[in-house]
Computed example of a mutant assay.
Amino acid sequence: MAKVALVTGSNKGIGFACVRALCKQLNGGIVYLTSRDEGRGKTAVEELKKEGLNPSFHQLDINDQESINRLRDDLQKEHGGLDILIQNAAIAFKNKDPTPFAEQATITMATNFTAHLNVCRTLFPILKPGARVSSLSSFGAVIFWDKIREDLKKRFNAVKTEDDVIKLMAEFVELAQSHKHKDKGWIDSAYWATKMGVCALTKIQGEAMLADSRDDILVNCVDPGYVQTEMTSGGGNKTTDEGAKTPVYVALLPPGTKTHGKMFSDCKVINFW
């Protein structure tokens, strides 16, 4: 049976390159390119069709639970579930953006962590046996870990449940809103904080899948590297196709692989926390 894959936030950048790579590597597979904006998404699909590829399109706004629900229902109806999920959708404020940090923290957390978690909670129940989840984190999570205070590191190391991670992320936003985050050991990067949240969440989710009745489901996260995208203002040292390499590698880990809840960089596990 043909595998069904889906990439969030994939009308451009790394997500678009992930769709391209999956279309090439999934023999006979069905690959969904998703976008919040239907017009941009369909334009992206047509670009790939000009390359001789054949992705499908589905509208998805990860900040809209009804949109996520529609996607889940359609995948279940049309395909009986999902085999591959690459969680790519995310936002980042530019370094020179004048938006107050409190607002940056609130908005970034809402998309990069809370909406990410909502997609997981909605789509994980329809993952098929042998499914793979590849969530994009960032090397910024490693920098974040190096810079935060030791007592905060201990609290991250102590997380056991999704709710534990949610509480840490909510605390960061609350402290940022009162300008007290640095006093409590956090640092001035909402993006890096959210990506550390993705790493912590991935650890919990990967371990939880070991007890799932469906066999061989893996949840891991990825540092794609410093990639030439709008988010980096084109300043990366990797092309988008190069940035897609590790997310797709994790999405295609072979049956029987035992790596779960880890972060990959350059197609290798990195243990930084």
Results as ranks from 00 to 15, higher is better:
5 A>W: 01
9 G>P: 03
10 S>P: 07
10 S>M: 02
13 G>I: 02
16 F>G: 02
17 A>L: 02
17 A>R: 00
22 L>V: 06
26 L>I: 06
28 G>L: 09
28 G>Q: 12
31 V>Q: 03
31 V>H: 00
33 L>W: 05
35 S>V: 01
36 R>G: 06
37 D>T: 13
38 E>N: 13
40 R>S: 14
42 K>D: 07
43 T>R: 15
46 E>V: 12
47 E>G: 07
50 K>T: 07
51 E>F: 05
51 E>D: 15
54 N>R: 06
54 N>F: 09
57 F>P: 01
59 Q>N: 09
64 D>L: 05
64 D>V: 06
64 D>P: 13
68 I>Y: 00
71 L>M: 13
75 L>R: 03
76 Q>E: 15
83 D>L: 04
86 I>T: 08
87 Q>D: 12
88 N>T: 03
89 A>T: 01
89 A>N: 04
90 A>E: 01
92 A>V: 11
94 K>V: 10
98 P>D: 13
100 P>H: 14
101 F>G: 09
103 E>R: 07
103 E>H: 12
107 I>V: 15
109 M>W: 02
111 T>L: 05
111 T>D: 08
112 N>D: 14
113 F>A: 01
115 A>D: 00
117 L>W: 04
117 L>G: 03
117 L>Y: 02
118 N>E: 14
122 T>N: 14
124 F>K: 05
125 P>K: 09
126 I>E: 07
130 G>R: 02
131 A>F: 05
133 V>P: 06
136 L>Y: 04
138 S>I: 07
140 G>I: 00
147 K>G: 10
148 I>E: 03
149 R>E: 13
153 K>G: 09
153 K>R: 15
158 A>G: 11
158 A>H: 11
161 T>M: 09
162 E>L: 07
165 V>W: 02
166 I>N: 00
171 E>S: 12
173 V>S: 03
178 S>T: 15
182 K>A: 12
182 K>H: 12
186 W>Q: 00
187 I>Q: 12
188 D>H: 12
189 S>W: 03
194 T>D: 05
194 T>K: 01
198 V>H: 01
199 C>Q: 08
199 C>K: 03
201 L>K: 03
205 Q>F: 07
205 Q>D: 02
208 A>T: 12
211 A>M: 05
213 S>N: 15
214 R>W: 12
223 D>G: 13
224 P>V: 07
226 Y>P: 00
228 Q>M: 13
230 E>Q: 14
234 G>W: 03
236 G>M: 06
238 K>N: 09
239 T>I: 10
241 D>E: 15
241 D>M: 08
242 E>Q: 15
242 E>V: 10
243 G>R: 01
244 A>G: 01
251 A>C: 12
254 P>R: 09
255 P>G: 07
258 K>N: 13
267 C>F: 06
269 V>W: 06
269 V>N: 11
270 I>C: 08
272 F>H: 09
272 F>Q: 04
273 W>P: 05
